[in-house]
Amino acid sequence: MRITTIGFDADDTLWQNEQFFRITQDRFQALLADHADPAHLAERLLAAERRNLAHYGFGVKGFTLSMLETAIEITERRVPASILAEILEAGRELHAHPIEMLPDAADVVARMAESHRIVLITKGDLFDQERKLAQSGLGARFAGIEIVSDKRADIYTRIFAAYGDGARRAMMVGNSLKSDVIPAIEAGAWGVHVPHDLTWVIEHAEPPTGAPRFRELSRLGDLPDLVGQIESD
């Protein structure tokens, strides 16, 4: 069966993302070094992020608000205003950080766009994702841009129906098993995992090794060959 539509994740699939969050978290831990050890602070921050996903969603804004909340809690509301100001500045800098494309990303997107309808499917802050896409120079390659609040099977069903011939003739490519691969397979599409060295713990999941439509690549540059192999079988 020919694949007609290919969805690409953005963060840590096409360009770096998690490494900049880690740098910002290190800065946050340094600011609060007198109030908590790094391991305990990281646990509290992660707990705040989990709580706040339902309120703020994914992305820089939710992360910044979670840092502020954690700073207030860990100091029992005695955190100096100067530290809160520095946390806000760290969040602004993270939001404005120039993108760093991952190897093969631009070439693979350009190549697949010549033969398939391709869609960018990402979650996070609307302005931040639009900014990064504009910097990437890849926007014109995509038949559609979908910035969603979460990635679930019904979301993939809707997107692949809107931009292609349905999930059965679609593929989703990304670094997150939890968000990019498993729900796409549940929708009926192919799910291709391209691991990244750094993955946010909330995005961790077990590989669906028994799923017939699950594939894993060590590098994004191997995607065209994989698509060709699937379509020739």
Rank of each mutant, 00 (worst) to 15 (best):
D34S: 10
F28C: 06
A54V: 09
R50I: 06
P38T: 13
A39W: 04
A71L: 01
T64V: 09
E49L: 01
A36S: 11
A30H: 14
W15A: 14
G62P: 02
Q19F: 06
S66W: 01
H35D: 15
E43Q: 13
R51P: 15
R51C: 10
Y56R: 05
L46A: 15
H40G: 12
Q19S: 14
N52H: 07
D26V: 00
V60Q: 04
N17M: 03
T13C: 11
F20D: 12
L14R: 04
R27Y: 12
L53G: 10
G57Y: 07
L45E: 00
L32R: 03
L46S: 15
A47H: 09
V60F: 03
G57W: 09
N52P: 09
H35K: 03
A39V: 14
Q19L: 09
H35Y: 12
Y56E: 08
P38V: 12
A54F: 05
T64P: 01
H40L: 15
E49A: 05
E69I: 00
R50Y: 08
A48F: 13
N17I: 01
L14H: 03
A39M: 13
T13D: 13
E18L: 07
A30I: 02
I72D: 10
R22T: 07
Q16K: 09
E43F: 08
E43L: 05
